[in-house]
Design a protein around this nucleic acid. Sequence first.
DNA 1: GTCTATAAAGCGATAGAC
DNA 2: GTCTATCGCTTTATAGAC
Lengths: 173, 173
Amino acid sequence: MIPLLAETFREHGYEGASLSLIGQRTGLGKGSLYHFFPGGKAEMAEAVLAELDAWFETNLFHPLHTGPDAEAAIAAMFRTIDSYFRSGRRICLVGLFALGEPRDRFAKAIATYFTRWCQALASALRRAGKDPALAEEFVAGIQGALVLARALDDPDLFTNALARMEARLADGR
Amino acid sequence: MIPLLAETFREHGYEGASLSLIGQRTGLGKGSLYHFFPGGKAEMAEAVLAELDAWFETNLFHPLHTGPDAEAAIAAMFRTIDSYFRSGRRICLVGLFALGEPRDRFAKAIATYFTRWCQALASALRRAGKDPALAEEFVAGIQGALVLARALDDPDLFTNALARMEARLADGR
DNA sequence: GTCTATAAAGCGATAGAC
DNA sequence: GTCTATCGCTTTATAGAC
């Protein structure tokens, strides 16, 4: 259910994902949708952001913070990210919301997502003996690579960008 | 006229910029808007993208390609970019369009923008004796930094990101 | 050229039968 | 819980007076 909503928002944006479109994708009528989400579309988006937040917390931030081998945790992050964003064929919903109109409405969830990502990565970098300032650079690099990959319709741009970041770490730069 | 349209699309997105909102910002009624742009909103966006393309060609791409001092041209690009994006307080309209729904409709203009930027920067990097592969990395880094700065409502993130890119060049990395 | 009025369609949201 | 029907509003776009 939530994944279907997430995919609809990802592909059409918050405004572009009309209730009728959401109904088609989920196979539910408006009555059912408002039964599960009395708050309407805004509540659907909140639910999506909450689930997304939980997923990243479990699969990315927690391992980065607590993984015994920090270097391995960072390498695992790059693999997880490549898989999550379908090697550049999928965009970041939070990034899309951040750039667009819905930013103000979901400002807290958006800010939390990026703050936690940067902090978790910085923590792992520190423990791995690398420059923690790279965290912002990598998170921004990932977001930018998603923009570029989608703009040029070339998913390889994303995969290559991830590879270059890992190479920078290996070089000790 | 076009700058007013551009700012409205930047702040509200393609779908969020309704004709009534555009009318408010430009001070024109719908009759006047359709007089100048018979194709409606799509034609307004096309005009904005065309003007934007011309601006970047003149102020960024051309200097990067033909500037006698390639290193100085790259430094000038960073200054121009910082000014254009209001030190992180303004987002990139093309990046926003690329991530969102209007991507397919304006695919050509979007792809051209990023392709030319990467090519121009790669050309300057090559002539400056740097790694031309950094071009994609920097363009993506700029886009990602704009996402992050807006997500966290912290323009300094953008300025700092630009500074780190320049530092990487100076270090010969 | 710029305005008002209006058409036709789609939007989010609600009500109520089942 | 799920559906259909509907409300009120906004949207893009057009028509026509001035």
